[in-house]
């Protein structure tokens, strides 16, 4: 079994109001040094595929077809050992 972690983020240039709101709240808490904040999603997948390269290819296919909307989001796949 392989564990794949898919991180989905809004593309740069796409307005991220959630990130902005989090940043504002951090400022309100006194974290004055916080610059831009971006919020995304982490999706963990358990895959029966044991070959890491094949598992990555599967996870990338899933990300392209469902987990991310490539009009607005980009994704990154990490294969955990």
């Amino acid at each position: 079994m392989t564990r794949a972690v898919v991180t989905v983020m809004l593309k740069t240039g796409v307005l991220d109001p959630q990130g902005k709101a989090i940043g504002q709240a951090l400022h309100n808490l006194g974290f004055a040094g916080v610059g831009e904040v971006r919020a995304g999603k982490v999706i963990e997948l358990e895959l029966s595929e044991t070959d890491p390269t094949a598992a990555r290819a599967q996870a990338e296919d899933m990300a392209r077809r469902l987990l991310a909307n490539l009009v607005i989001e980009s994704f990154r796949v990490e294969i955990a050992a």
Partner: peptide, 11 residues
């Protein structure tokens, strides 16, 4: 249809 619908800018 092209494009996407994002969270309202006001949240």
């Amino acid at each position: 249809l092209p494009g996407a619908l994002l969270r309202n800018a006001s949240l």
